[in-house]
Amino acid sequence: MSSSHPGSEPVVELRDGAVAIGGRPVLRHVDLTVRQGEFVTLLGPNGSGKSTLVRALTGLRPLTLGTLHLFGTPLASFRDWHRLGFVPQRSSAASGVPASVAEVVGSGRLTRRRLLRPASRADRAAVASALELVGLADRARDSVATLSGGQQQRVLIARALAGEPDLFFLDEPTAGVDLPNQQALAAALGALSAAGSTVVLVTHELGPLAPLVDRTVVLRDGRVVYDGAPLQVDDAHGHHHPSPRRTDHHPGVVAPFDRSGEDVPW
C-alpha cells in the first residue's frame, strides 16, 4: 500500500491478524505495516475494531490468529517497552487518591527506571520537558482532578512522552476535547512527528490533526477497507473510495427486505 516512508524500517508488522472477544470475531485478516516516521490514523465507525486493533498492536489483546512484530521482534519476545508510548482511551486521569500532574506524567518514566531506584535528574528533566511540550508546565504540582477534561487528556499524552518512545499509540485523544486543547495536542504531536517518531492514532474526527496525517487506514466490521493517502471528508470524487462490499459477519435478517435489488454476499 502507499506509504510516504517506503524505504524505512517497519516498526509495526501485523500479518493476517485476527482477534476474537468472547468468541465473537472483532478483527479478521488484518494486514498492517507501519514504517518508521509515519503518521497513521485509524478511522472507522463505532464497533469497527479500531480500538481493538490498537490494543492488539500494544499486546493488550492477544491475537487469535496471525503474527505481530514490533521493531522486527515477535511480540512474545519483545522487551523494549520503553520504545512504546501508549495513550489509552479514557476520559479522566484521576483515580481514587489525589495525584499531582507531575506524578502521573512521572509514571511514564517507569520504562526507563530500575526497580527501587529514586528518580534521576534525567527522569525529572524528561517529565518537565513532556509537560512543556503539552503546555502544562505551570500545572505540574496541581492535582490532576482539578484539570479540565482536555487538560487531563494532555496529561495522559505527556505521560507517554515522558518515556521518550519512538512509537506512539493514541486511542481517541481528541474525544470530548475542546478546540484550543485539540490545537495544543496537534502542536505536541506535530513536534513529535517532525522529530521522527512514528504515530498511530485512532480517532473519530481529525480536526486540527488533519495536516499531520501521512496515511489513513479505514476499518469496517473488523477488516481493513482502505489503506492509503489521507481521506478528506469533502473530497467526494477522484479518490480511492472505501470498498462498498458488505462485510457483515452476522446473517442478514433485515437486509433482504431492505435491499431486494442488491446481490448480498454471505
Binding site: 517497552w81 501508549f86 479514557r90 512521572g106 509514571s107 517507569l110 518515556g163
Partner: peptide
C-alpha cells in the same frame, strides 16, 4: 514505599502499566 512508583502506576492505569512492560 520502595515500589511506590510501580504500584502507583499499576493502580492508576492498568492498561498503561501493561504497555509500559510492568
Amino acid at each position: 514505599l520502595g515500589l511506590l512508583p510501580q504500584l502507583f502506576t499499576v493502580a492508576q492505569d492498568q492498561d498503561f502499566a501493561r504497555v509500559a512492560g510492568l
